[in-house]
């Protein structure tokens, strides 16, 4: 009897271990085929525009980058901290330094990072890195971005580790998170003008507006049903505002002015991380800012 029980427990344990192994296998870091980027030539000038639209500098420039120095935001030493309910994430060094940064990466490595959240060593990245947005970016844009990133100044500052407690420090669990929340495709669908489609690409493939402005579920996944409806500031006070047409009633010219200068219709100016976002948006062609404004008008109103 006791022996049979013991055998049953052993079998149960083996079964559970098997299920866990299968789950890990099914959710292991995914990568594109080795020839996914073959035949694509990156254009660094176009890549600069991708870089600004995707807001890379906003998170990856050093926290002490001096104000108003256009070169400072291009030194991608990392180190800015991003608090969340799961722990504090720190943006890594993505300068082309071969040791501290991504100098040894291939364009395919960058594609795998942006598209699958998978590192060149085959590990899961945490979704503080907004690959749920970049999964929609085109391969050509990744190739262009790669070409541009490699022209930036290398910085030897080592990346600092994230400060994430158990169980979220087990990266294998991120495979499950990705299975639930990482998928390509647009949130805003339906009939859009060409300008709105461009705006959607800027917002949902590069600009990752939803990372702050969309509420999250208990597992940290973005609630696509409440897209851009506002969310609490993680680890801070206040809220990121609802920017659906239900609450944001600014006109097209008001929005473009805001994206260009940071001035609201009342001539207050953007603060917090949004000021950083404006620094990036203001570098885009005016037509892109107009496209983003037109896109916001097409978002489903959520009161």
């Amino acid at each position: 009897m006791r022996r049979r029980l013991r055998r049953g427990a052993a079998l149960g344990t083996a079964l559970l271990a098997g299920i866990a192994a299968a789950a890990l296998l099914l959710t292991r870091p995914e990568r594109a085929p080795a020839d996914a980027m073959a035949g694509l030539t990156g254009d660094a000038t176009r890549g600069a525009r991708i870089f600004d639209a995707a807001g890379c500098a906003g998170c990856h420039m050093a926290p002490d980058a001096p104000e108003g120095d256009p070169q400072a935001r291009l030194r991608l030493a990392g180190g800015q901290a991003f608090p969340s309910p799961f722990g504090t994430f720190r943006a890594p060094n993505i300068s082309p330094d071969p040791k501290a940064g991504i100098g040894r990466w291939s364009a395919l490595d960058l594609y795998n990072a942006l598209h699958f959240g998978t590192s060149p060593e085959g590990r899961h990245y945490y979704p503080a890195f907004p690959y749920t947005t970049y999964v929609n970016a085109s391969r050509q844009d990744v190739a262009d971005l790669y070409a541009y990133l490699m022209t930036l100044p290398p910085d030897p500052t080592p990346s600092r580790p994230h400060d994430v407690a158990f169980p979220f420090n087990i990266r294998a669990g991120l495979g499950l998170w990705k299975a639930l929340f990482l998928r390509p495709g647009w949130v805003v669908t339906g009939p859009l003008s060409a300008e709105q489609e461009r705006g959607r690409y800027l917002a949902e493939a590069l600009g990752h507006c939803g990372e702050c402005h969309t509420p999250r579920n208990a597992l940290g996944g973005l609630r696509r049903d409440a897209w851009l409806a506002g969310a609490p500031v993680p680890g801070g006070r206040g809220r990121f505002p609802n920017i659906t047409p239900a609450r944001l009633d600014w006109g097209q010219a008001d929005l473009v002015e805001y994206f260009t200068t940071g001035f609201t219709p009342e001539y207050d100016s953007a603060g917090g991380h949004m000021a950083v976002v404006i620094e990036n948006l203001s570098l885009l062609p005016r037509a892109d800012r107009a496209a983003l404004a037109a896109y916001l008008k097409a978002v489903k109103p959520v009161p």
């Binding site: 104000e67 108003g68 940071g262 100016s269 953007a270 603060g271 917090g272 000021a275």
Partner: peptide
């Protein structure tokens, strides 16, 4: 640049 200078402090 004027908006940027305002925003620098507000940021």
């Amino acid at each position: 640049p004027l908006g940027g200078a305002c925003g620098a402090c507000h940021k």
